[in-house]
Design a binder for these strands. Sequence first.
DNA 1: ATTCTTTTGTATAATATCATGCAAAAGAAT
DNA 2: ATTCTTTTGCATGATATTATACAAAAGAAT
Lengths: 393, 393
Amino acid sequence: MERPQPVLSGELLTAVAETGPMSRASLLSASGLSRATVTQRLNAFIASGLLMEADEMRPSGGRPSRLVCLNAEAALVLAANIGESHIRLAATNLDLAVKAQVTIAFSIDEGPEGTLDRISAAFVDLLRSLSREAAEVAGIGLSLPTPVDFRRGRVVGPSVLHGWDEFDIAAYLGRSWSAPVWVENDVNLMALCEYRQSFRDTPDMFFIKAGTGIGSGIISGGQIFRGAQGAAGDIGHIQIAAKDEPPLCRCGKFGCIEARAAGWAIARDLAAFGRLASNARDIITLVEMGVPEAIMLLRNAGRTIGEVVADVVSILNPARIVVGGTLARGGEHLLSGVREMVYQRCLPLATRDLEIVQATTPSDSALLGAAMLVREQVFAPANIDAFIQRFAR
Amino acid sequence: MERPQPVLSGELLTAVAETGPMSRASLLSASGLSRATVTQRLNAFIASGLLMEADEMRPSGGRPSRLVCLNAEAALVLAANIGESHIRLAATNLDLAVKAQVTIAFSIDEGPEGTLDRISAAFVDLLRSLSREAAEVAGIGLSLPTPVDFRRGRVVGPSVLHGWDEFDIAAYLGRSWSAPVWVENDVNLMALCEYRQSFRDTPDMFFIKAGTGIGSGIISGGQIFRGAQGAAGDIGHIQIAAKDEPPLCRCGKFGCIEARAAGWAIARDLAAFGRLASNARDIITLVEMGVPEAIMLLRNAGRTIGEVVADVVSILNPARIVVGGTLARGGEHLLSGVREMVYQRCLPLATRDLEIVQATTPSDSALLGAAMLVREQVFAPANIDAFIQRFAR
DNA sequence: ATTCTTTTGTATAATATCATGCAAAAGAAT
DNA sequence: ATTCTTTTGCATGATATTATACAAAAGAAT
């Protein structure tokens, strides 16, 4: 066995991947290595095809620096987002630009083996359409609408996905793919996507998704906060007391915030007013049409969610609350309900610098988040050597 | 300027400090360095007085390994815990064994300058009593009963300590001491102490302190979780709705858990029964005497706290809840109230492997926690070089 | 056009680290 | 007492990295 060339030690690659295009001078000070070493290693990486010289130059008063950046086409990232009724898949380059994508049908009742086989097949099709090979895949990311134990690569606990509990997803996909596989909860990935795309300035951020269901993702120090089993942020079934009779939740308890503020709960309450809505999007349509009952219920839902967000603010002390999901698209109604309760309930210190904003909600942020997660993991110090060994030529 | 000897690169020192006594063989595999390098560096550290050979040997079937450990007497740690009426101070060695301690009086109204000057003077006295010098202090840790921005070394937000808001404690003490200074909230330090002393197996842990007030500390991945401004865990003023008229809290809001379950609130409710208690300890005394009203109120307080803990479990997904503070000493009454609400309200996944236990509450755990924090920081990779430069001889 | 400033590449000798191999140490197993 | 196993120390030549110095590059300022 030949030992890997030490010149391809991964620190510089990790630095460029995390920071973006960098000048040699900034790499020099960031790495703490000597100039000779940096030059030598960069040349080796450029020769190996993993890094390349960018066109950009950064004027600095003196000689402008030539930037070094990742060769985005050196490898591919595969990502899939399993939704309630369909699966969206994408292949991206290392800059996370989507090169090809496809959507396939999905049923909740499909077991893990069948689903994963179909995902694998769809990935193969994507690769074929790009004339690329499986060996060019840097990593695979899966987004699931259920709590996931990230470390073990499995679904944990009973959920909407029947038969997935404790199924070893990473190992199963590992049989067909040599690339590493990561699995994560969809709301966590939406949170990651929002953070990376729009809110880089607040590495301590709380993302709440209000749609058909209610969930949340916690970003702490720029990383997904997962808790002991990966169930952190699972706030849909926190119970809230109010003066009314607490409504029955689909989890079997009474008064959960889902049963008060989720899309299905608002639809239920709209029905009592004789208004028909079958999902969260319908509700937003009614709100946009100016139906007063819909507006009132949406704002009330914001207050309910705000009660829990107020607790979250006291517990986590985030710098920013980002409200996303379909229900957040109805203008300011949901948001102002949230704000109302948070500013009413929290101590001044926690709200002094707190921003409560709407998500930018790019379409399919969970899918993009899955690709981001893969990229982050592939270039993490713990995994960078494996990446180099596979892709340096 | 002379460059530091590269042989004294700190990785091995950090490894020994974090892991405890280690054999050369385990250091070899843990560091990834070659045997020759490990030998060379260890000899340098032993010669410099920072490491030493332990007496222990670890039988392994072959030649027993001689363990290398920190020279606990190579430096001192100074710690102070500012309480509501007095300040406790201690000097420990690097194994956190207390070498000398003292308690001085303190008043809430004393400003930061006067207080810190008196703390400095007390530290000087401690050093003199040990015949040690200020140059031998590896670091100073301060515990304060108020939210602290750890990164900036200051109190943030108005609190019981008047005039301390935004006062730069680290900088002020830095004028008299060359050792680095760290400041942290007392409940966070109690949480750290509990984790390190008794619950090493659960690096995702939630500590709740129920005494005169109510606060909490979050340990995530073995580290204190601080949030954006250091106010994470400040849960005393989370509001809870119930059927009764919500009681007025000392913060000015109604229905805070402090106003329902803290020592002062229980004392207030005991007074309504004609029972006199002026602090948390009095309440525990009444409970131990078997006074039924006191037991009932304590259990009720447990339920109130349990409602918030249930939310925390849903949000953070900890592996263990540790209940501490004076009110936790009243046997199982408080604890069972907490358990009752958590198991009633949380989803099975989050409680499946959740343990809810009593704190071991060593006396003055915040003071010990402050010393632990200093030790952790001094030997952290970011600071280890500074430590070596100061103490290697 | 000249000077200034910062970036970048390269050369050199000194130093640190590495893999490898060998031998000694010391308790455990026989 | 002998063998086994693991730990430890050290020597060696090869390789990598460093500090230092010098020179070239290239736009900005004058």
